[in-house]
Simulated scan of single mutants.
Amino acid sequence: MDDVTRVAETLLDAYESQLRALVPLELPWGAVVERDGPLVRTHYGTHATVHHAALRDDLAGLIRRQQELFAARCEPVEWKVYSHDAPLLGESLRAAGFVPGPERTLLMADIAKVPSPEDLPPGMRIRPHLPGERERLRRRAAVVPEQRRPLSELEADGTAPRDRIGDGDPAAGV
């Protein structure tokens, strides 16, 4: 095994054990996060995503359990798959009836070998994570309206805005 392969494997192991399936400190308003073994499910009210750490045990059972959970909630789900998860995870998800989305690729680099801004070609730039960026994103998220809910749910709990929905009269356009 050469040094580059060894470094790549070390970085991938660190990513898998320290970052993947990490619950973010900041979530969008209304998002709910649940852990299920190596999985992290994030429910947004309209859909959900599944992230995970390394999957080693009973993959078929884990997938089946998620299908049952999301079916009970009538909630569409996106299961994040990275190229280094393939082919086992992708094949298992397809066999369970999931439709494959785009495979994600994890890019890693030795920070010492990343070009400095002065070495970049004209027109390219490196955008650093600025200290105020997190607060700016938080303020922007605070003005996002409540997530959409089905009309039947709004009517059932009495919060349907009658002036915007109409009174069921065909002349009202509803």
Rank of each mutant, 00 (worst) to 15 (best):
E78K: 12
R127G: 01
R73P: 01
P38I: 10
T42W: 06
P121C: 10
P100C: 06
L89P: 01
E68G: 06
R64S: 05
L27W: 10
V40T: 10
V33Y: 11
V40I: 11
S83R: 11
E26K: 07
P150K: 05
A72H: 03
E78T: 15
G123N: 15
P76C: 04
D85P: 04
G30M: 08
A172G: 03
V40L: 13
D119P: 02
A96M: 09
I111N: 11
E135A: 09
V174W: 13
F98K: 00
S83Y: 05
M1P: 03
H84C: 06
L22Y: 08
A21L: 13
G132P: 00
R73F: 13
G132W: 09
D58L: 00
D110P: 00
G123V: 13
R136Q: 03
A96Q: 13
E133C: 04
R35V: 06
G45I: 01
Y44N: 08
L12V: 00
S92Q: 07
L151V: 15
K80M: 13
P76I: 09
L69Q: 00
D36K: 10
R149S: 09
L137R: 08
A156C: 13
A8N: 05
P145V: 07
D58S: 00
A31E: 07
A71D: 11
G158N: 14
R41G: 03
E133P: 00
Q147L: 12
G101F: 10
G45K: 12
A21W: 14
E135W: 04
L62T: 10
L120D: 04
A172R: 01
C74M: 12
D110V: 12
L25P: 13
P150C: 04
L12N: 08
D163V: 11
E103Y: 15
A53E: 01
D167C: 11
P115A: 08
L11D: 00
D169C: 07
L11H: 06
P121A: 15
V114T: 14
L62I: 02
Y82E: 08
A142S: 07
S116F: 05
V144Q: 11
L106I: 09
L12E: 07
E153D: 14
Q67G: 06
R56F: 01
V7M: 08
V23P: 07
F98D: 01
M124K: 06
L106Y: 02
R164F: 12
W29Q: 12
D2S: 15
E16Y: 10
G158D: 15
S116H: 15
P87C: 14
G45C: 08
R139H: 03
E146A: 15
G168M: 05
P122F: 15
L39G: 04
L62K: 03
H52L: 05
V114G: 06
V4C: 00
R94H: 09
R164H: 12
A96P: 03
R65P: 04
P131I: 14
A21K: 08
A54G: 12
T5F: 02
Y15S: 01
A172F: 09
L11A: 01
H129N: 11
E133A: 11
R162K: 13
R134G: 02
T42R: 12
R125P: 09
W29I: 10
A112P: 03
H52Y: 02
V50G: 01
G168D: 08
G90C: 02
C74A: 15
G173T: 04
K80T: 09
E146K: 05
I165L: 14
D58N: 02
R162H: 12
A8T: 10
L59N: 01
P150W: 12
A53C: 04
A14M: 05
G173L: 04
E146T: 03
